[in-house]
Design a protein around this nucleic acid. Sequence first.
DNA 1: GATGCGTGGCA
DNA 2: TTGCCAAGCAT
Length: 290
Amino acid sequence: MPTSDLHAPILDWYDEHQRDLPWRRPEASPWSVLVSELMLQQTPVARVLPVHETWLERWPTPADLAAEPTGEAVRAWGRLGYPRRALRLHAAATAIVAEHGGQVPSGYDDLLALPGVGDYTAAAVASFAFGRRHVVLDTNVRRVLARAVGRSELPGRSLTRAERDAAAALVPDDAATAATWAVAVMELGALVCTATGPRCEACPVAEQCAWRLAGHPAYDGPPRRAQAWDGTDRQCRGRLMAVLRESHAPVHRSALEATWPDEEQRTRCLAGLVADRLVAQVAPDVYALP
DNA sequence: GATGCGTGGCA
DNA sequence: TTGCCAAGCAT
């Protein structure tokens, strides 16, 4: 297969076009990398940048965060979305202090055991923060490989064994090169080989891209369900959380009623937030961040 | 394996 | 305008 021809062009392209991101700088700590990865789960870089900066200033080490109430993490999370990630990051910091002497572990298995850290994040932190050799397979990498190697516009809904094997076969032998390869392919997917409107004219491997050579055939896999929003529990939970984040004093139930007209749904969502530990009930009908 | 989980920007 | 998308994880 000519896939080895992908390496040099993509590594060279990354060397020239990579973004200067705080968590990529030489002085960035493993904690900075871990925080960035949690924040970047389903959230664009542009929105992560300011929150990541203030987060690291306030909590430069896992121990600093672990010493705070979880509600402070949820409040500082702001509007990044999926606030349960803030809870998981706090729990990860607590576990790092309790089980790893306050140092972010460097091994994949130890990272994977941390709350909020799955296969992708464990591989990414081990690779980016510690220079380990791993298969780092996120949505960007999956898309780049689906096109360059697999001849399709988009990857399938679920990660297949064949897809993982193909990605593994492309990882350079040398650990340091493998780590650069991982971030380089991700960056290519983020900046050039984008989900919509890919900039093939700027792509370093356009000449050998199977999808392009096939004439850019449109995605023909199973339909991808657009996530509903209006009227969903997610929207309702978001409204409730916004009120609690913005108030530095406990909030009475009556103040929450104004945010959502459907009482049955609002009550159910509030109970769900309490069950999720995103909200604490501090007195009858009074709520606050935990 | 499918589903639920926030938020905002952009074409 | 509105659908689609953004470095996933846990259940």
